[in-house]
């Protein structure tokens, strides 16, 4: 399960959902893996402003991954001009490509995945198992 997904998950218990402590879920005993996927710079640019950045930063810190920037990166930080020859054109038709930051974010959000481990609710403490890259949110009957 890619790290991006965790920004859209919370505890499945109804009593937890309305409490701030249930989001984000906390990784525990997480085995990480790198699942290579093709980069889609436009997708990344569109998704970034929708993320709860604080929650994303908390997640990467808890996983011991490199720190994210303090604020959501702006769209212009995600691209870099690829034409180095300044005489090549007047800017309008200058080619641009993903910046190093965009590449790093792609690796972190889209490729870095929890292969196995647990996701823990900060409110009730319930642990949801992650196996073969899939988190299981089915609750035992006494908890529903």
């Amino acid at each position: 399960m890619k790290l991006l997904t965790i920004n859209f998950l919370t505890c499945a218990r109804k009593t937890c959902k309305s409490t701030p402590a249930s989001f984000p879920l906390h990784p525990k005993e997480a085995e990480l893996e790198q699942v290579e996927t093709e980069m889609n710079p436009l997708f990344l640019r569109n998704i970034l402003p929708r993320l709860d950045w604080e929650a994303m930063r908390m997640l990467t810190t808890e996983l011991g991954l490199p720190n994210l920037p303090a604020e959501t990166p702006a769209p212009e930080e995600l691209v870099v001009a690829t034409t180095t020859d300044l005489d090549a054109g007047n800017g309008d038709d200058r080619a641009s490509g993903p910046s190093q930051m965009a590449r790093d974010l792609h690796v972190l959000l889209m490729e870095t995945s929890i292969a196995s481990g647990k996701l823990v609710c900060g409110n009730c403490g319930h642990e949801y198992a992650v196996k073969e890259g899939i988190a299981n949110f089915l609750l035992p009957s006494h908890m529903v």
């Binding site: 890619k2 919370t10 499945a12 989001f23 899939i134 988190a135 089915l138 609750l139 529903v144």
Partner: peptide, 26 residues
């Protein structure tokens, strides 16, 4: 869910429709 997870960029979890693990109004 294991079959469904082969569709990047999307993600898949195991969950019950009556107890969805997602933030409300999001």
């Amino acid at each position: 869910a294991s079959i469904a997870k082969r569709h990047p960029p999307h993600s898949v979890v195991v969950a019950d429709i009556l107890y969805l693990p997602h933030p409300s109004r999001a």
